[in-house]
């Protein structure tokens, strides 16, 4: 191996290691502060890592604010959204590829057009509608606006379009109804698309602040990001440790999920880029 190549590798490796250190710095600092006792946080001699680990910040985070409740709300909202999205998107995507009906092109055109609309755009009318129906400050308000995922329909449609139609015809001959074909044949086959979509959907809605900020003012309905914003707002400067602990707890599920299932996460989130 030539010296030049070695030098080049050394330089590029140093560069990416340094970059990775900067990228990871906020994570490390968050954990570090969350584990520091108060006197180590508020000091002139700031240390990178705590000298002794203090779990009390985490205890405080769960008692000072209702962190458990926020996490539970996050789960309810994410699962609720995902279930409805799949219930609507999968049959529709199946119909778009495997059935011949007159409105098919129109519906697919709507899906493509829908991809162009960021959800911020529909916020005002949907807020108005929910207010009319007296549904603001409910789980419904957090779930309902997202049940029609055009991205999901698009993703599943692209997937179903690749499955040979023989398979569905065989199922028809075997006596399966169209609904049974959707859920017993098409959906299990679309598992890769479904996991990618689930990752995309759950990440988007677990991390979302915009809509919970608009649709709810009741603290009991706060999702994790909404919850820590409450915490941050009421925090007077002394609760830094618990605040970082809460932030760490909120971030943990997705980060751990990502580390355990890197492939699925990368694919799901990369696919999400298709959405406008």
């Amino acid at each position: 191996m030539s010296t030049r190549l070695l030098v080049r590798r050394a330089v590029s490796t140093t560069f990416v290691l340094l970059g990775a250190a900067i990228v990871l710095l906020p994570f490390v600092w968050m954990l570090s502060v969350s584990l520091k006792p108060a006197d180590e946080i508020f000091t002139r001699e700031i240390a990178f890592l705590p000298t002794r680990f203090e779990w009390s910040n985490y205890v405080e985070a769960f008692t000072a604010v209702d962190l458990t409740r926020y996490l539970m709300n996050g789960v309810v909202v994410c699962v609720g959204i995902l279930v409805f999205q799949i219930l609507l998107a999968v049959p529709c995507a199946y119909a778009l590829t495997q059935r011949r009906f007159r409105a098919r092109t129109l519906v697919f055109g709507m899906v493509l057009a829908g991809l162009l609309v960021p959800y911020h755009v529909t916020a005002i009318p949907i807020f108005l509608g929910l207010a009319q129906l007296r549904l603001l400050d409910t789980y419904t308000a957090l779930i309902l606006p997202f049940v029609a995922s055009v991205f999901g329909m698009f993703l599943f449609r692209q997937f179903f379009a690749q499955i040979p139609s023989d398979l569905f015809e065989a199922a028809r001959v075997d006596g399966l109804s169209e609904t049974a074909i959707v859920w017993r044949i098409a959906f299990p086959l679309a598992w890769p698309a479904a996991t990618a979509f689930a990752v995309f959907s759950v990440t988007a809605h677990w991390n979302d602040l915009f809509w919970p900020l608009i649709a709810t003012s009741d603290r009991a309905l706060a999702t994790p990001p909404r919850g820590i914003v409450y915490f941050n707002d009421q925090e007077s400067g002394s609760d830094v440790g618990p605040l970082m602990a809460a932030a760490a707890v909120v971030t943990a599920p997705l980060v751990i999920g990502f580390l355990l299932a890197q492939r699925a996460f990368t694919q799901g989130l990369a696919a999400g880029g298709l959405k406008g």
């Binding site: 990871l24 909120v250 980060v255 989130l269």
Partner: peptide, 17 residues
């Protein structure tokens, strides 16, 4: 994985960090 971590992380929490 390290570089991708911020993509999956909750931005609100990371903003506080």
């Amino acid at each position: 994985a390290a570089y991708f971590l911020p993509v999956a992380a909750t931005l609100v929490a990371m903003a506080l960090a």
